[in-house]
């Protein structure tokens, strides 16, 4: 197999130049998907026979919960790549994805709590999924604070990468134990998104929202990565040329 593409994408300069136009595509697709998904989900999808219109929170809660988990996994894979192949760009991804992941996890928590009020009658239930999302949020916070408190950039990157890997090994165990704990303490109440067979016109906007969230993440993380690359590579000639092109130098 030819691995040149891998090495090319590992080069900060190559990444910076390639994402110049790619980022607009991410932003454009995110906008399209999110607008279509939101309008469809809010105004056109039918209401749930049991939960009524509060079901419409589904179109944010589920995509954000899925994305938050995917970001964690992506960070861990990227952390492994960074540690094994010493690829700086992979570390940049981990560090820039962490705050986005934390904010998306927070969104999943907030929408879950808001959804809980009309469904369960209280703002917070120690439901298995909400609880493990809460712990995942704490994990994100731990990783971010570790990264911020180490001064040396190289040490901070590697330490953060190790923390991500440790977190991802633990995450399935945490999820399992929380599920188990949940069934022990309260006999299975019905979970938010549990429906026997969701109608097509109900889940299609959800799917569009999921795609929109992924595109949004791609857009946001590329945006952040480009800034970090500029700062890390500030001494090189191509950065100078880029600044001159922007008329800021």
């Amino acid at each position: 197999m030819n691995w040149t593409w891998f090495h090319k994408w590992g080069s900060p300069k190559w990444f910076f130049q390639k994402t110049e136009s790619l980022i607009y595509w991410f932003g454009f697709l995110a906008l399209i998907f999110l607008v279509v998904g939101l309008v469809w989900g809010l105004a056109f999808a039918p209401e749930d026979f049991k939960q009524g219109n509060s079901f419409r929170i589904f179109y944010i809660h589920v995509p954000s919960a899925i994305l938050a988990q995917s970001i964690f996994l992506a960070m861990a894979i990227s952390a492994a790549v960074g540690l094994i192949w010493r690829m700086k760009l992979a570390h940049v991804f981990v560090e820039t994805a962490a705050p986005i992941g934390a904010s998306i996890t927070l969104l999943a928590l907030l929408t879950g709590a808001i959804w809980g009020k009309p469904t369960w009658g209280t703002w917070w239930v120690w439901d298995a999924r909400l609880t493990s999302t809460l712990i995942q949020f704490f994990l994100y916070l731990g990783i971010i604070s570790l990264h911020q408190s180490i001064e040396n950039r190289d040490t901070a990157s590697k330490a953060t990468a190790i923390a991500c890997l440790v977190g991802v090994v633990n995450l399935p165990i945490i999820k399992f134990s929380v599920n188990w704990w949940n069934t022990l303490h309260q006999p299975a109440t019905f979970t938010l998104t549990e429906s026997p067979a969701m109608a097509t016109e109900m889940w299609v906007p959800g799917l569009i929202m999921v795609l929109g969230f992924y595109m949004l993440f791609a857009y946001l993380v590329t945006l952040r990565m480009r800034s970090e690359i500029l700062e890390r590579e500030k001494g090189s000639a191509w950065v100078k040329a880029y600044l001159e092109k922007l008329n800021v130098l």
């Binding site: 939101l38 809010l42 209401e47 009524g52 219109n53 509060s54 419409r56 929170i57 944010i60 809660h61 954000s64 969104l107 907030l110 929408t111 808001i114 959804w115 009020k117 009309p118």
Partner: peptide
């Protein structure tokens, strides 16, 4: 009004 659930639905979308 969202069939009486307006507060919650719009709160969630505001958080978003």
């Amino acid at each position: 009004a969202m069939g009486g659930h307006g507060l919650y639905v719009w709160m969630a979308y505001a958080a978003f």
